[in-house]
Nucleic acid binder design. Structure first.
Lengths: 229, 229
DNA sequence: GCAAAAGTGTTTGCTCTACACCCATGT
DNA sequence: ACATGGGTGTAGAGCAAACACTTTTGC
């Protein structure tokens, strides 16, 4: 089977930069390529767009095929189109970034990719194609966006103590924040629901749990509210 | 001549949302389509990507071919990929936005497009494809970005009085700004070079001219400076 | 009782906003 | 002389940053 067109066409792929947090640091999900080019090297999960499929769907499909991840928070990042970025032919890639919380999302290396693993953001191996540039762009976007969009919650389980939320900001912004100021600011926005639950299994006083109140956030946005941390 | 591939490929285009300002309002450059589909309707300038060409180059090439505009400020906006956005086949478009100053850039309707013209942002005709959504996205991006990146200058000639710069912000943000506060804030950043020149041909006291000092801006950015209006 | 983290207010400086008048120039 | 916009300062409010101790709980 083959497809013939009147004009030459570049190929199109979607690639995903998947971020997660553990106790240590910000992590990125990579796969080890099972095929040439760059066979055996680490790369971002992703693959070719099918006709009739939006690129966000391509990204989600490839992410699930290669790593088992699904139902993740996903936003378009940037489109990379330099002709020399793929040695085989001109391949345009539309990059997405995803935020997941490690607890809810077990990763299975699956079909296409011979292996999938999390890497600390400061400990990334050599990557295939221009994936290092894509990763850098994604990291910058995340850093820029977390302060004015409520996306940090996507890296956490549904219920979380404020200390953990603070650590999300500290790890992404890469600087320490003042505990009192952080709590004042985030609570004063009125978009966190205070739960009647506390942490369990901690070796010290248990903290109260909170939940991001998306309904309330959306209502406030309607009225001109702007998230700002 | 034809091209055959092992897999089906979507087509790829680049489209441009070109903004400019006149005394009245924010304007957008549209072309009237010379071919089906949507023949005779207004649309964003743009066209098909060639293999071996980056999409930014595609955007610049098509913009010049269709409107005569070149050497414009151009940034990638977003990639639109819903399969139904083009009635012929699956066409992915990578949208760019451009900022030009009307004085320096004469527009000639040229080859491909039967006609090109500026439209006030509040007076846009029905557009081909999903170009209304692209335009809306571009307008939002411009509004969001002008406050934290020094891109407003791209809409002005090299030398300008502060009143005109203020009107750029007022027209894009769509609200009045206080003259004293505006001047204080923009001058305090130290990225405008005060020239020994004043306006000519005005029917009142002539204002001093300024120039955006990109060297100084870049130097400050290196040192952690953030533009903010 | 000790270790670990939860939880809590106040002061200070800075930034943003609101606001009005005199001056220079051209017609 | 009149119309038009150029150019300038200050006071008050709100926001951001710095800073330390007491309480709770688990071991």
């Amino acid at each position: 089977m083959s497809y013939t067109y009147k004009y030459a066409k570049p190929a199109v792929t979607a690639d995903c930069v998947v971020f997660a947090l553990d106790e240590e640091d910000l992590k990125v999900l990579l796969i080890q390529r099972g095929q040439e080019p760059f066979k055996g090297q680490w790369a971002l999960p992703g693959g070719f767009a099918e006709v009739g499929e939006s690129l966000e769907d391509t990204a989600r499909r490839e992410l699930e095929e290669e790593t088992g991840l699904k139902n993740v928070f996903l936003e378009q990042l940037y489109t990379f189109s330099k002709p020399e970025r793929d040695p085989r032919e001109h391949v345009i890639t539309v990059a997405y970034y995803a935020l997941v919380n490690l607890a809810d999302h077990e990763v299975h290396a699956s079909t296409d990719a011979s292996n999938a693993a999390w890497f600390g953001i400061d400990d990334i191996p050599a990557l295939a194609f221009d994936h290092d540039a894509i990763l850098t762009t994604a990291h910058e976007r995340l850093r820029g966006k977390i302060s004015y969009q409520p996306i940090g919650f996507e890296l956490l389980p549904e219920k979380f103590p404020l200390r953990i939320l603070q650590s999300v900001y500290e790890k992404i912004l890469d600087r320490d924040l003042d505990k009192r100021n952080f709590r004042k600011k985030i609570l004063s926005m009125g978009i966190l629901q205070e739960l009647d639950e506390i942490e369990t299994d901690v070796g010290h006083r248990a903290a109260r749990l909170y939940r991001f109140n998306k309904q309330e956030y959306d209502r406030k946005v309607e009225q001109g509210f702007n998230f700002k941390m």
